Simulated assay, not measured.
Amino acid sequence: MATNAPRDPKNNLWDFTAYYLRYLRVQKSLSGDDLGAIIKCSKATVSRIENGIIKLDGKQAAQIDRTWKTGGLFGLLVWYAAIGHDPQWFAQYVDLEARAEMIRIFEAQVIPGLLQTEEYAYALLTVGTTRDPDRILHDRLQRQTLLNRDPAPFMTVLLSQNVLEWPIGSPEIMKAQLARLLEMAEQRNVAIRVVPRTWETGAYAGLDGSFSLMSADDYGEVAYAISPETGRLVSAPSDVRSYAVRYDLIGAKALPEAPSKDLIREAMERIP
C-alpha cells in the first residue's frame, strides 16, 4: 500500500471514515489486497478509498461491518456522511472537474461556468451575496482553461431554453455570451444541445434543478447538484446512477446539435 499521510479526520465525516478504515486495517495487520478481498475490489481501489479519492459505498461498508464485526459502524459512517453537509464539497468538485476526462452538465437557469464570458460571469456574481466576486471570477476563468488542455475532456452540455433568453448584464453582454456558446459548440470536445420550451417538451426531469456529472479513470464518476452559494457532491454509485439516468431523460427531450445552434442564433437575433 502507498505510504501517503492518512486523511485528516477533522476535515469532514468522509475523511474520518477513510482515516478510521486505514487505522483498523493496519491494526489488524491486513494488506490492501486483504481489504480488497473483503470489499471485492482491487488494492488500488482500496488505496483510493483510504486516500479520500473515492468514497466507501454502502455495500462495501456493510461487508466490512460483517467481516470485522463492528456493529454496523462503517455503514452508519457512510450513511451520515452521505446525508450531511460538507463545506469542502465545492473545493472537491473543482479538483475533480480539473481531472475529469468526461463532463456532462445540465443547466436550467444560467450559462454554465465553464462556458461563461468574463462579463456575463461578473454580472451574475455582483447581484447576489458573493463576498469576493473578483476572486471568484478569477477562479472561474481559471477553471475554463481545462477545456484547452491536451488531451481536453469531452464535455456535453444540456441547456434549458430559459438559459438563452434570461437577460443578464446588458444586451451586448448577452449577445457576446451566446456567441461564445456557438463558438464553443464548434470545438470537437464540446457538444451543446438545448431543451426547447414547448408544449411537446412539457414537464421534464430538468425542472428539478441543475447538476453535473464528471468521470475519470482515477475516481470513477461523481455528480454535483448545484444550489445557491454551494452545492452537494454525490459519490455513492447508486446515487450517481440516478443522476446519470436523469441526464439521459433530459437529453431525450433536447434538440440535436444543429437545431440547438439555430435556437441559440434565434435568441441572439431577438436581443435588441
Rank of each mutant, 00 (worst) to 15 (best):
R135D: 07
D150I: 14
P153Y: 09
R180H: 12
R143F: 07
L181Q: 13
Q161F: 06
A176S: 14
H138F: 09
M184K: 11
T130G: 00
E118D: 13
T126C: 03
L164I: 15
I111H: 06
P133D: 14
R143G: 03
V157R: 08
T126S: 11
P167L: 02
A179C: 02
F154E: 12
R180D: 02
L125F: 06
L114V: 07
I136A: 00
V157D: 11
K175Q: 14
P112Q: 10
N162G: 14
V127L: 02
H138V: 02
R140A: 12
P112I: 06
T126W: 00
L147Q: 05
L124S: 00
E119S: 14
T117Y: 03
V110N: 04
D139N: 09
R131I: 11
T117Q: 11
R131K: 12
Q109E: 12
I136G: 00
M155S: 09
I111F: 08
I173Q: 05
Y122T: 05
P112H: 01
L181Y: 09
I168M: 15
L124R: 07
N162T: 05
A121I: 05
D134Y: 01
E165Q: 14
L141E: 06
D150T: 15
I168P: 00
Q116W: 09
E118Q: 14
A176T: 13
V110F: 11
L115K: 07
Q142V: 13
M174N: 07
L182T: 09
D132H: 07
G169Y: 03
R131W: 03
L146G: 00
R149K: 15
R131P: 01
W166G: 01
S160F: 05
A121L: 08
K175A: 14
T117D: 09
R180Q: 15
I168R: 08
Q161H: 06
I168A: 02
D134I: 01
